[in-house]
Every structure is written in C-alpha cells, then in structure tokens.
Amino acid sequence: MKAHTKETQSTMTPEKSLNFLKEGNLRFQNNLKANRNLLEQVNDTSDGQFPFATILSCIDSRVSAELVFDQGLGDIFSIRIAGNFVNEDILGSMEFACKLAGTKLIVVLGHTSCGAIKGACDHAEMGNLTKLIEKITPAVNAVSEPTNETQRTSKNIDFVNTVSRKNVELTIERIHTESPILSEMEKNNEIKIVGAMYDINSGEVTFY
C-alpha cells in the first residue's frame, strides 16, 4: 500500500475517510496489517504529504492513532495531548490540517481508563499538570450521576469512562464554537468532525 498522493487525497470524502479508519481498526482488532512498505512511503512522501484525516488523541502509550487505525506514513495528522482537549494551538493545527493540507475528517478520540480523566475526577494537583486537569474538569462537572461524591473518583471506572465520553463531546463543541473555519467547512460538507472512544481492553474504536 502506497502513501496518499494529491490525486488520491482529492478522491477522499469525509464519509470515505471515516470508513478507511473503521476498516483500519477492524484490521487492528484482528491482528491484520495492510501490506505497506514504510521505507517506500518515506520516499513517496519526501516531496509532500497528503493525509486524509486528523486525529486528536491522548498521549496514552496504548492509544497510538497510527497503530489502532492501521495507517502508514503520510496518512493522518496525529495530535496528542493528555486528556485530548483543544486549545488555540491545537485548533490552529486542525485548521492547518483541514483548510491548507486537505484532510477531510477530524476525529476526537478518547479512551477507557484514561489517566488524565482519572486525575480530573480526583481533582489532582501537581505542577503544570494542575492547569491541564482544569481543562478537563468541565467534563467531570457535566456528568451528573452518581451524586454521591465517594463514587465520583478514579476508583469508579464506569464514572471515569462516562466522563471520558463527555470530554470528547465537549471538545467537539469547543471546536465548533472556537473555530469558525472548521465549523464552516463542516457546514459545507468539506469535512466531518466526529467523536470516538478506544477500548484499551479490546482494541475496538467506537464512533459516535
């Protein structure tokens, strides 16, 4: 499998891009890999890159977007930060990826048992991590159940995973609100912005 070219990128639609990722994740779950020569892809992309998707995911070492979606060099823009939230820099990166570099899909990818989400649930404080966790706290506050404070901690994995899903939803809302460029592109069906969750136990990505 060769790296994407300007021509192949131009044939991609938001729906086709999403299907590419779904098919890649199925290969990953079944321990199958597309036949690609990575060194050949290095050569293919030496004069330019034409990715079809932009994926915002957590820094968690188990959630490499290239691996869980079985993609090669030049296929996706991968943005990683603990807790997969957005700020001005990340929004700017997404705008570059879609408006200037031509990707057709943005995926905000959360995952189960997320350490950053656990920290937010426990209101952890430590150096610069404190500021990072503050950006995830709105997702904790947006989940109303359970009401018992003793159940709203990292020890309650169901609560943690619910907060992680809510964090993905709030992140997508922020993209729409804080990036008129991306919001307009989606309204014009030039791109699609979707949320997803990766299950660290099964390797499955569920889109929603």
Score class of each variant (00 low, 15 high):
Thr112Leu: 00
Thr112Met: 00
Thr112Asp: 05
Thr112Gly: 05
Thr112Asn: 05
Thr112Cys: 02
Ser113Leu: 09
Ser113Asp: 13
Ser113Gln: 14
Cys114Asn: 07
Gly115Pro: 09
Gly115Met: 10
Ala116Asn: 01
Ala116Phe: 01
Ile117Leu: 02
Ile117Pro: 01
Ile117Phe: 09
Ile117Met: 11
Lys118Phe: 03
Gly119Pro: 08
Gly119Thr: 10
Gly119Ile: 15
Gly119Cys: 12
Ala120Asp: 03
Ala120Glu: 07
Ala120Asn: 09
Ala120Lys: 12
Cys121Gln: 10
Asp122Met: 03
Asp122Lys: 03
Asp122Gly: 07
Asp122Gln: 07
His123Leu: 07
His123Lys: 09
Ala124Ser: 14
Ala124Trp: 06
Ala124Glu: 08
Ala124Asp: 07
Glu125Cys: 07
Glu125Gln: 15
Glu125Ala: 14
Glu125Asp: 11
Glu125Val: 14
Glu125Gly: 08
Glu125Pro: 04
Met126Leu: 12
Met126His: 11
Met126Trp: 09
Met126Gly: 00
Met126Phe: 13
Gly127Lys: 04
Gly127Leu: 06
Asn128Val: 09
Asn128Pro: 04
Asn128Cys: 06
Leu129Ala: 00
Leu129Thr: 11
Leu129His: 00
Leu129Asp: 00
Thr130Met: 04
Thr130Asn: 06
Thr130Lys: 09
Thr130Gln: 03
Thr130Gly: 07
Lys131His: 13
Lys131Ser: 14
Lys131Thr: 08
Lys131Trp: 02
Leu132Ser: 10
Leu132Trp: 10
Leu132Phe: 12
Ile133Cys: 05
Ile133Gly: 09
Ile133Thr: 06
Glu134Ser: 15
Glu134Tyr: 05
Glu134Gly: 15
Lys135Trp: 01
Lys135Asp: 04
Ile136Pro: 07
Ile136Lys: 12
Ile136Cys: 08
Thr137Pro: 01
Thr137Phe: 01
Thr137Glu: 15
Thr137Ala: 11
Thr137Leu: 03
Pro138Ala: 14
Pro138Asp: 13
Ala139Asp: 07
Ala139Asn: 11
Val140Lys: 02
Asn141Trp: 03
Asn141Ser: 12
Asn141Met: 12
Ala142Lys: 01
Ala142Asp: 15
Ala142Val: 10
Val143Arg: 07
Val143Gln: 13
